[in-house]
Design a protein around this nucleic acid. Structure first.
Length: 593
RNA sequence: GGUCUCGUAGCUCAGUUGGAUAGAGCAACAGCCUUCUAAGCUGUGGGUCGAAGGUUCGAAUCCUUCCGGGAUCACCA
């Protein structure tokens, strides 16, 4: 690799000149800023103490030595303490030659090691998916793809929260006011119907609450005594007792929801290797807690409830079993984690969950460590920031929730009108056009969300999300389509691609090759940081670089067959990278747009 | 109140282990289509990197304090 060659060359030169190793920290390279001549820059400030000369002097002396001893160094210049090295075109062409035909340049061959388990989505079954889930789903899917491209076997799992009080609320509302509505007889998505029931419950409950507060009861009292709440609680107890009627209704309504979710997932382009249901896992974890009690790691209070004391770790005490022996969320998460650890023996257990649950995961890991689970450290909370709207946070009660299906509808509709406005769909068959609108709409959405660092809270402005110019998904898709169009034409013109390449690179050709060159590093960084944003930003830079090249340099019109040939291959290489890399974000690249 | 986190151009965001004069896109303005797709390219304006100290050859980046926003601290999930 380039940096190894340069690094070794630097060290040799340094030792020769100053008789000592260039101390501790490795030589740091950076891309040379565009205003200076060169490709890679070495900062020599860290070495002035050893060399006992001025930075300029050191840089100059080393530059001269490297020019002699490192054959890929063609020129150098020194600006203050910065040694700018110009790498010979032959190095870049050699790189190009070895890689331009690869279908998945930069991807690391899959290893047969322990898998990485990625849990994401994890919806509740009482309402449809919304914008928050969209970020979660896109992140989970993309991070999985990025890890795969880094050679890790990946298992994608989804833990569906299909039981609990919230589902009972929807069920109760359906019993009371549902009028036997079904998705079939109303031609409505099942998750939407169940969501409507949930909203109805909330509305009716509010009504009851306000009537009761009018009677002078406090809010807490009211919530506990509201007849609807009591009924919902009773239903939950019946569910837990296995009451056939309740279980049956529960199965039916969850079935509706799953059908709806499947549709949404499919359109979003995300999938899972395995789906878990909390109704099957919620009792897990009790044994684990019991074991902790016996070994004395956990404490039992007078009322019989079990706790984990985390005050020494700067946290509070955490309840693990109620006095009546029933479990809480943490208990089942402990159990589920152990279950997965045994099932997959994973190298990592990644949970894609919002940062509002940071505390929960801190506790989870600490408790597992106390219980001597050596795999506790393989648990990783991929904590992502909330999605906010221009009017603030999404609140279901205020109706400001952005529904996932509607969002996709809007993106696709915008793609359609935009494409028609530009007159780009005139020669397309209906099916092809529809596919294109889907690709563009979803591409815009995915890119818009994934380009932001997962850790950060992000602003979702609907108007900006449907912008298809500039730093957007469609910009990248457009660039891809342009290249495909070029390649298509070159075939029509009967261009013969050969291995004869130019030996001198134009600035824009070189810039494009350099951008392609760094992809493997970007992919590794994106894997380490679990960050699709790095991939998105890379794609944007690559597309921009290509467009500049395309604007400035003739390709098909180039008369010299060797130059034309080289440029076409460069286009083809770029196209492959755009395609395989955007797939890491779940984006599809149209052939024409 | 404790803990965590964020604060970069009017807006949305980059800025990977500290490196050169802090970058994009949008918005605004000015150019480029008889020539490979103008969803493109080029240019102009726009910044006290929340504030103040500190560490050092060098700080948006590391440390401290403060200001401002957010999250969390349930016998909810």
């Amino acid at each position: 690799m380039l940096e190894n060659i340069l690094s070794q060359g630097f060290s040799r030169a340094f030792i020769e000149l100053y008789g000592e190793e260039p101390v501790g920290n490795q030589v740091i390279f950076q891309k040379t800023r565009s205003e200076f001549e060169g490709d890679r820059t070495i900062v020599v400030f860290p070495f002035v103490k050893v060399a006992k000369k001025s930075p300029e002097m050191i840089a100059t002396e080393i530059g001269e030595k490297m020019l002699q001893s490192v054959d890929i160094v063609e020129k150098f210049n020194v600006v203050k303490g910065f040694l700018n090295l110009l790498i010979s075109d032959s190095y870049w062409l050699n790189f190009f030659n070895k890689n331009y035909q690869k279908q998945h340049f930069g991807f690391i061959e899959p290893t047969s090691g322990k898998p990485v388990v990625v849990e994401y989505s994890s919806p509740n079954t009482n309402k449809p998916l919304h914008l928050g889930h969209v970020r979660n789903n896109l992140l989970g899917f993309s991070v999985s793809e990025i890890l795969k491209a880094n050679g890790h076997p990946v298992v994608r799992v989804n833990l569906v929260n299909d039981r609990g009080i919230h589902i009972c609320k929807s069920m109760l509302a359906w019993q009371k006011w549902g009028n036997e509505r079904t998705p079939e007889n109303e031609d409505i998505k099942g998750d939407k119907l169940v969501g409507e029931m949930y909203v109805r419950f909330d509305k009716e409950l509010k009504q009851q609450l306000s009537e009761m507060t009018d009677l002078g009861l406090s809010e807490m009292e009211v919530l506990k005594k509201a007849p609807l709440m009591i009924e919902a609680q009773e239903m939950l107890l019946k569910w837990e007792a296995g009451d056939p009627e309740i279980r049956n209704l529960w199965k039916i309504m969850n079935g509706w929801v799953y059908a709806g979710f499947d549709e949404t997932y499919k359109r979003m382009g995300v999938d899972f290797d395995k789906i878990y249901y909390e109704s099957e896992t919620y009792l897990l974890g009790k044994d684990l807690v019991q074991e902790g009690v016996e070994s004395g790691v956990l404490i039992i209070k007078d009322d019989g409830s079990v706790w984990c004391d985390l005050t020494a770790d700067g946290l509070d005490e955490k309840l693990l079993l109620r006095a009546d022996g029933t479990s809480v969320y943490m208990t089942q998460d402990l159990g589920t984690a152990e279950f997965r650890a045994k099932e997959y023996d994973p190298s990592k257990l990644i949970y894609v969950v919002g940062n509002e649950q940071n505390y929960h995961f801190d506790v989870l890991k600490l408790v597992l460590r106390k219980l001597n689970r050596d795999w506790a450290d393989s648990i990783e909370h991929l904590s992502y920031g909330m999605v906010e709207l221009p009017q603030g946070k999404m609140k279901s009660r205020e109706g400001t929730v952005v529904d996932a299906d509607e969002l996709m509808d809007e993106m696709i509709a915008t793609a359609k009108s935009m494409t028609e406005e530009l007159g780009k769909s005139e020669n397309l068959a209906k099916a092809d056009a529809d596919k294109l609108y889907y690709q563009i709409g979803l591409g815009a959405l995915k890119y818009f969300i994934l380009k932001v660092d997962p850790k950060k809270t992000m602003m979702f402005n609907p108007q900006e999300s449907v912008d298809f110019n500039g730093n957007t998904g469609p910009f990248i898709q457009y660039t891809h389509a342009r290249i495909v169009s070029l390649l298509r034409k070159s075939v029509q013109l009967g261009t013969i691609l050969s291995e004869d390449l130019t030996t001198i690179l134009l600035p824009k050709e070189k810039a494009l090759i350099l951008q392609l060159y760094i992809f493997p590093e970007i992919l590794i960084e994106a894997g380490k940081n679990r960050s699709p944003a790095l991939i998105a930003n890379y794609l944007y830079d690559l597309a921009k670089e290509f467009n500049q090249f395309y604007q400035e340099i003739p390709i098909l019109k180039e008369e010299d067959p060797i130059k034309r040939n080289f440029r076409l291959l460069l286009c083809s290489f770029t196209q492959q990278v755009l395609k395989s890399t955007s797939a890491l974000l779940g984006m599809e690249m149209p052939e024409k747009m």
